[in-house]
C-alpha cells in the first residue's frame, strides 16, 4: 500500500508489486500512533503487579546476585580490580536490553497478529514500540546501576551521561538483528527458540561475566568484531572509567551494524506484508 498526497487529497494505490524501501516515511507520519503504542507496551507489562515497574530492576538484580556469587565469589573471575557486581552489571544491563529487544522485535508480527490482520498501520511501529519498551526497562536498570556504582565508591561523573546513548545503541542493534527474522518467524516459529539459544551463547561470547582481557590475543581480531563487545566496554568506561582499547575492529563492527540495520529495515518492509497470509 502506497500513499502520496497530491493537492486534491490522499490517493492510495494498492498493487501486488513489491516496493523496496525502508518504511521510515510512513512510520514518521504515524509517530503519534507509535508514541501511544509504545506507552501501551510499557504499561501493559506491569499491569496487575503490586511492585509494578520495580520488577524491571528486581529481575536483573536477582540475576546479578547469582552471578556475583558464582563468578565473583566462587570462581573469582579477574575483573582488572573493579568490584565484581558493578563490573558485571555494567555489561549485563546493556546485554539484557539487547537480547530482550531482539526477541521482542523478532516476535512482533506474530505477537500482534490479531492487530495486523484487522487494521492497517505502518508495521514498523510494532518493532520500534517493542524496542522502546525494552529501552524503558533498560533506563530503570541504569538507575540501579548508578546507585550500585555509587555504593561501591564511584561518584557520578559527566562520563555517565554517555550511558543512555550506549543503551540506545544496543537497542538499535537489537532492532537491526530482530527485523531480519520478524516476518519469517510468523511462518517458521522454530526461529524464536533458536534465536533465544543463540542469544544465550552470545552472552558468553561477550565479556559480561568475565573481562575481555581473558581472551587470548590471537582470537581478538575476530572476537572484537562483536558490536556488543564495544557496547559493554563503553558502558564500563562510562561507569567505572575503565579504559577502552580502540582498534580497527570497532569501526568495522560499527559499519556492520549499520548495514545490518539497513538490511533489516528493507527485509522487514519487503516481507511484513506477507505475514498476514502465511500465519
Amino acid at each position: 500500500m502506497t500513499e502520496d498526497r497530491p493537492d486534491d487529497g490522499p490517493v492510495t494505490v494498492i498493487e501486488p508489486s513489491v516496493r523496496f524501501g525502508l518504511g521510515l516515511a510512513g512510520t514518521w507520519r504515524s509517530r503519534e500512533l507509535l508514541l501511544i503504542f509504545s506507552r501501551r507496551q510499557i504499561s501493559a507489562r506491569y499491569r496487575q503487579m503490586l511492585l509494578g515497574t520495580l520488577w524491571a530492576a528486581m529481575e536483573p538484580l536477582g540475576l546479578l546476585l547469582m552471578m556475583t556469587v558464582i563468578f565473583g565469589l566462587l570462581l573469582k573471575v579477574d575483573t582488572e580490580g573493579y568490584p565484581y557486581p558493578v563490573f558485571a552489571f555494567a555489561g549485563m544491563a546493556a546485554w539484557l536490553v539487547f537480547s530482550r529487544a531482539t526477541l521482542a522485535v523478532a516476535g512482533c508480527l506474530l505477537d500482534n497478529m490479531g492487530l495486523i490482520s484487522k487494521v492497517y498501520f505502518p508495521r514498523l511501529i510494532l518493532p520500534v514500540a517493542a524496542v522502546a519498551r525494552e529501552l524503558f526497562d533498560g533506563l530503570l536498570m541504569m538507575a540501579i546501576l548508578l546507585l550500585l556504582a555509587f555504593a561501591y565508591g564511584y561518584p557520578p561523573t559527566p562520563r555517565m551521561l554517555a550511558l543512555p546513548l550506549i543503551l540506545a545503541f544496543s537497542a538499535l542493534l537489537a532492532l537491526a538483528v530482530g527485523l531480519w527474522f520478524a516476518a519469517f518467524l510468523v511462518k517458521f516459529r522454530d526461529i524464536r527458540p533458536i534465536l533465544g539459544l543463540c542469544l544465550q551463547a552470545g552472552m558468553y561470547a561477550t565479556p559480561i561475566v568475565y573481562s575481555a582481557s581473558l581472551v587470548p590475543d590471537r582470537f581478538r581480531p575476530i572476537y572484537d568484531l562483536n558490536p556488543m563487545l564495544w557496547v559493554v566496554e563503553f558502558s564500563r568506561w562510562a561507569l567505572l572509567g575503565k579504559e577502552v582499547a580502540l582498534s580497527p575492529a570497532l569501526f568495522l563492527s560499527g559499519g556492520v551494524s549499520l548495514l545490518l540495520l539497513l538490511g533489516g529495515l528493507s527485509v522487514f518492509s519487503l516481507y511484513e506484508r506477507m505475514a498476514v497470509d502465511v500465519q
Binding site: 500500500m1 487529497g9 494498492i14 498493487e15 501486488p16 492487530l115 487494521v119 492497517y120 506484508r273 497470509d277
Partner: peptide
C-alpha cells in the same frame, strides 16, 4: 484496507480511508 496485498490487479482509492473490520480494534 491494506491489511493484505492483492496477488493481481490494482485498486486506487481517493480520499482518507478508514476501515472497521472488527469491533474493538486494538
Amino acid at each position: 484496507s491494506g491489511v493484505t496485498p492483492p496477488t493481481a490487479g490494482r485498486a486506487v482509492l481517493r480520499g482518507k480511508i478508514a476501515s472497521l473490520l472488527e469491533v474493538g480494534t486494538g
